[in-house]
């Protein structure tokens, strides 16, 4: 690990003042400490934000608000989250392990870095880690990589599960930086890689995520998260689907659909949402609605199975949620 200074400020203002240059904010540490050991991230200063007043879970008529420092496990077990936004609780519980969920913060989860093996290996080229060095995954081992939103510079997936659920629910991220506070739709927060895959989101220098909000959505009670992976637990997604359905009289009135494991960022599917409206809650109807879910996909040498797996994942998730 490279040497760095360490600061543990107690106010948001002070944290922002201590940040800058090559600094990194530390919350749960499950991404940062790992990547510092691998020398993929080499900050000259680590600003520990765990003492900042950024906790709290609120579920009320306005929706859901999560403080950025709430831990994944605490959000997952919150009774209000479980009953009114089950897709959020399920996405969290299907992520990582209980030890990691006890550590990892909600804000940090949204900012976790890709699991692409070439990004994590400093002996190989990677445009995300070292801009302009090339992409080893394009011609290398790419079975787990993205098929949507990719470019010739980068095919790495965004690894978060809960970000997929939150994008489906129109979540916003609250940000605080040197120029004050602002908020952005989470769906717009992430950038496509294009030819600058090292720029993953729209955070400004020294800016912090302070909270996450989800607008009220009564039928989010009828939601769920399905994750398909190489082992049953403690593994990243090959494909995943976050689904919420407003069903009345056996017919879909409204739908929210986003997918993970396939995109360079959490991937909302508005065309599938539209195609679901007015359909019966039958498997055959779902199959028709998701027929074009992977349109525009660019499969790689080892992941040509992903478009079909994605459609089947969606049908299974819709069937499960439709029966709730």
């Amino acid at each position: 690990m490279h040497a760095y200074d360490f600061a543990a400020p107690r106010s948001i203002r002070s944290a922002i003042d201590r940040a800058g240059g090559e600094s990194a904010y530390l919350a749960g540490g499950t991404t940062l400490v790992d990547l510092m050991k691998l020398e993929v991230m080499t900050p000259s200063r680590v600003v520990d934000i765990n003492r900042l007043p950024l906790k709290g879970i609120r579920v009320d008529g306005n929706g859901l608000r999560l403080g950025a420092l709430e831990r994944m496990s605490d959000v997952a077990r919150h009774p209000g989250v479980r009953s009114r936004y089950p897709v959020v609780a399920q996405a969290l519980e299907l992520s990582a392990s209980q030890q990691l969920r006890n550590m990892a913060s909600m804000g940090g989860n949204l900012l976790q870095r890709t699991r692409c093996g070439y990004f994590r290996d400093t002996s190989t080229p990677c445009n995300k880690r070292l801009p302009g060095s090339g992409c080893a995954a394009l011609t290398g081992e790419n079975r787990t990589h993205a098929i949507l939103g990719t470019s010739d510079s980068c095919v790495a997936t965004h690894p978060s599960d809960v970000a997929v659920a939150l994008v489906a629910l129109d979540a916003q991220v609250e940000l605080y930086g040197p120029h004050g506070r602002r908020s952005l739709p989470l769906g717009d927060f992430y950038r496509l890689p294009g030819n600058t895959p090292h720029l993953e989101n729209h955070l400004l220098p020294r800016e912090l995520i302070t909270g996450i909000t989800v607008p009220s959505l009564s039928w989010a009670r009828h939601s769920g998260y399905l994750k398909v992976r190489d082992r049953q637990s403690y593994e990243f997604a090959l494909t995943s689907a976050a689904v919420a359905l407003d069903v009345s009289g056996g017919v879909v009135r409204e739908a929210r659909v986003a997918v993970g494991g396939v995109g360079t960022r959490p991937w909302r599917l508005p065309a599938v949402e539209q195609a679901l409206v007015g359909r019966r809650t039958t498997e055959a109807a779902y199959e028709q609605a998701v027929a074009h879910a992977a349109d525009g996909a660019r499969p790689l040498a080892h992941n040509a199975f992903k478009p079909e797996l994605l459609r089947r994942t969606l049908v299974r998730a819709l069937t499960t949620v439709g029966e709730l």
């Binding site: 360490f6 543990a8 530390l26 540490g29 499950t30 400490v33 790992d34 050991k37 691998l38 680590v46 520990d48 765990n50 496990s73 392990s97 209980q98 030890q99 990691l100 006890n102 550590m103």
Partner: peptide, 29 residues
């Protein structure tokens, strides 16, 4: 593994199980 993948380093901090290999000593002051 020393990379947060195996669980061999599990300890309790404030009563919760965490991975000590990904916990900085300075952050548990």
């Amino acid at each position: 593994c020393d990379r947060g993948q195996c669980g061999a380093c599990t300890v309790h901090v404030e009563g919760r199980r965490v991975l000590s290999c990904l916990t900085l000593t300075a952050s548990v002051d």
